[in-house]
Design a protein around this nucleic acid. Structure first.
Lengths: 180, 180
DNA sequence: CTATTTACTTACCGTTCGGTAAAAAATTAT
DNA sequence: ATAATTTTTTACCGAACGGTAAGTAAATAG
């Protein structure tokens, strides 16, 4: 792996585990097997490094979730596949979701992270579009705000024990889908 | 207000806004209008201060939510009142909920916070008991795990725009309640 | 009034932080 | 082969961190 990628991966894991303020550049360097100064050769600052980690993380999630769903014909199959993929992703790529869980509120609140907030909202919008589509197919309750549904999904489908995740998903599905 | 209370309140607000690692003892001292060393007169360490803030925050939430619900006779009224109180609390005491939202994942994951995790799980258990009661009254779907429902509520009822909060709540209610 | 305890301040400690300049090593181009 | 460029290391900086020791001021007890 290229050095830059090694740094990004180590940073992603460290930020996910300890949060932006909980991890030092020294730690990231050690985890990546490089000297700290080398990180500053590839990234101008800790904030900038975090920004790239965040963006790439959401890129990964989006690609994984929306790619394999785009060729489904039936809406119901599409949405269910999406939610199943979501659970799989949360289960197998835990670290990516942990990063979001840990820093979401900071990114939503602090003006400093405006770009990252936009990226995150873009992800939510894509999910909201999928939900909105369901209203046209009469598959989803009329009174549901697609963006609220996307927020609900994104903040509750997070790394947990498998049984609990499935249970949470079934509650959400019953809450938004007209039929099972 | 007593000095110790001033410190606790300032710490609560600071931790809620910036998280444990994002805030310095100096900042907390300034916000409380005292010298930093005085904090160490009342609290042995930053971690200890945070522990007390966390515990008192959950105490406050619990008291507010469960106190005014305990005298309801009809289960349906009780649960709905509980959820309404939850929304009110989240809306009006934003800072308390933000603290939990920001540090929940660290506290659930890091062994260092074992006591705080227990306190948080105790809160979830209380909520789960309320849900479990609903199963006995045939008000809540049989296949629902009360603890999963408590987790769903706690992680999705967080500070947001009022309309969205209500929308999220109605999805959750439809997801767990047999009838409206 | 004085002795003792409680509350608070000043001044500092060692460490770690994010970040940088400059040199060294490795790679590539001529 | 050697010059030019890219990548990496070494050695350091000032600031901020959590925390402490020693002393002062205010309240309370005898």
């Amino acid at each position: 792996m290229k050095t830059r990628e090694k740094i990004l991966k180590a940073a992603q894991e460290a930020f996910a585990k300890k949060g932006f303020n909980g991890v030092s550049m020294e730690e990231i360097a050690k985890a990546a097997g490089v000297k700290k100064a080398l990180i500053y050769y590839y990234f101008p600052s800790k904030e900038n490094l975090f920004e790239e980690v965040w963006t790439r993380t959401i890129d990964e999630i989006e690609e994984s979730l929306f790619k394999e769903v785009e060729n489904e014909k039936s809406y119901m199959r599409k949405l269910k596949k999406f939610l199943r993929s979501y659970i799989d992703f949360v289960t197998n790529k835990t670290v990516l979701v942990e990063l979001i869980e840990k820093e979401r509120s900071s990114i939503v609140e602090e003006q400093k992270w405006e770009n990252l907030r936009k990226r995150y909202n873009g992800f939510l919008s894509k999910m909201a579009n999928l939900i909105a589509e369901g209203k046209r197919y009469n598959a989803i309750y009329d009174d549901i705000d697609p963006i609220a549904a996307a927020n609900l999904i994104s903040s509750s489908i997070t790394p947990r024990k498998k049984g609990m995740l499935n249970n949470i998903l079934s509650m959400i599905m019953r809450g938004i889908l007209k039929e099972k």
